[in-house]
């Protein structure tokens, strides 16, 4: 078995990112959409750590901390809005969010 090189990590992170991306676009459940957003950000975290490690530079790892903070705050706000919406609409599916029309 060959060695695991940084390229493998990059491919993995891109896979995570695209799974998350497609998840946001294609999922109907809003909770799962939020989860897919988190997945994207985690894919990016992985890529950053890999690049940081492979060039022995700490900037990337520090950036990861910022991203994690932002992701946490985002999901907090997102869940708060989702809960408020759920109280009104009694549903977490995106096709029930159709009040705004022309």
């Amino acid at each position: 078995m060959e060695n695991v090189t940084p390229s493998h990590y990059i491919v993995l992170s891109l896979c995570l990112f695209s799974i998350g991306f497609l998840g946001v676009l294609l999922r109907r459940n809003l909770l799962l959409m939020l989860m897919s957003l988190e997945l994207m950000l985690n894919g990016i975290n992985l890529a950053l750590v890999t690049f940081s490690r492979s060039s022995l530079n700490l900037d990337g790892s520090i950036f990861v901390f910022f991203i994690m903070t932002v992701a946490a705050a985002e999901v907090a706000v997102g869940l708060a809005i989702l809960v408020a919406l759920f109280k009104k609409r009694r549903s977490v599916f995106s096709e029930d969010m159709n009040v705004i029309t022309n």
Binding site: V24, L85, V99
Partner: peptide, 30 residues
Amino acid sequence: EKSLEAGLKYLIFGALSSALLLLGIVFLYG
């Protein structure tokens, strides 16, 4: 409901686009 729905849409689209932006930054960093 309209306000909440708008907020949720803005959040999802906004988070999506900032993830894209972040991927771009990561490429440049890499």
